[in-house]
Design a binder for these strands. Sequence first.
DNA 1: GCAAGCACTGAACGTGCGTTTAGTATACTG
DNA 2: CAGTATACTAAACGCACGTTCAGTGCTTGC
Lengths: 215, 215
Amino acid sequence: MRSVQEDLTAVARIRDAALSRFAATGYSGTSIRAIAADAGVSAALVIHHFGSKEALRSACDDHLLDHITGSDLPHLADTAAARRGIRDAMGNLSENRVLFAYLGRMLTDGGPVAEHLFDRLVALTRHTIEDGAADGTMRSFDDPEVLAVVLTAQGLANVVLGAHVARSLGVQELDPPTVGRMALPLLELYTHGLYSDDTMLTATRAALRPTEGSP
Amino acid sequence: MRSVQEDLTAVARIRDAALSRFAATGYSGTSIRAIAADAGVSAALVIHHFGSKEALRSACDDHLLDHITGSDLPHLADTAAARRGIRDAMGNLSENRVLFAYLGRMLTDGGPVAEHLFDRLVALTRHTIEDGAADGTMRSFDDPEVLAVVLTAQGLANVVLGAHVARSLGVQELDPPTVGRMALPLLELYTHGLYSDDTMLTATRAALRPTEGSP
DNA sequence: GCAAGCACTGAACGTGCGTTTAGTATACTG
DNA sequence: CAGTATACTAAACGCACGTTCAGTGCTTGC
């Protein structure tokens, strides 16, 4: 009962097994011996190749970042390339399912790279919002800074809570047809909104403004 | 350096310390000895009162459910009361900050009660959508089932990813003024949508429909 | 052919874990 | 006032953890 293929190098098998285990049971909920067993090697070999459990986690983080930002790290500053990389990853999400799960776990476990990655995604979202507002495809908002953060968190919700979302929709995992089912309501929501008029919005605007400066 | 007050019973202090620790470092990342130290008791007393670490987790889950659904478990089926309880909790979130953090951790750690709670929140969201559609305050959607799941996940995003959201907005935690800052863009989004017209929506509708049944 | 280096293992080490045990002090009960 | 239950602790137990160590086979370069 091996979780990963045999025709990879031991290092790659260990890394893949670690990604899967870390994603499923968290960093501290995973033992090196369990990873080694999945990869079909001894626990000592894991240390031999990666040095320590923490270094193995870092290697997993790097592997995720590589796949998110295309193929190599120098492109990190290129937002267009990053956007393309993310879209590609969303496209063939079946083979990236473990990576998505690991991303979700990483964001909630608060590893060393998680903050940087979240901030990068916020910046990416903000650029998308500003580009959309510039070319007229998106509405312009009062507070794009906060909107970018909120939209990023919302977008990551289906990654972080993917297991619950899938189970609630009656499937085992977020496979392409299920993502398709979710795309339309999401786009409907992002096109027409949820409320039929702006009574809630204006009421909240009125209620919030006078008390904004009070302690 | 004690995390909880002195004037509570030892049982309550242990439970509060466990909530805080579990929320911060996860279940398997927390030791009973650390919880006991926070509560100012011995590790053996934790076992004496709760029986085991897993039972202590269950007690934390129950405590969270109690606060979410009002005060006692028999009201679990009353959706209106649950909605009121959630709104109250959102109102004075300063004192419930630990509970919110624990909720987020619970949902991603996948504890035994997490699935049930998520499903309940989905049902609650669905009722809200249907009520809103019935009295005209909300638009009616093609697939309210999926929309309810998506909206629930999105709403929980700010709980699960609360730490990242707060840091991205330059604050230490999601305090009331920060929640106020987030309320307006959110309502703007839920009132007018994100896109300025429905080109994306109709394009996706057209692209999705022919391939919906294909493998 | 042989020394060097590499991938790899089984066994062991020390530590911290959840839990158990034996025991003490305190409060209630007859 | 004896007896019993209760709150609580220090110490210990067994175990699983991350990591180390000594060693084995295999490949590579000379």
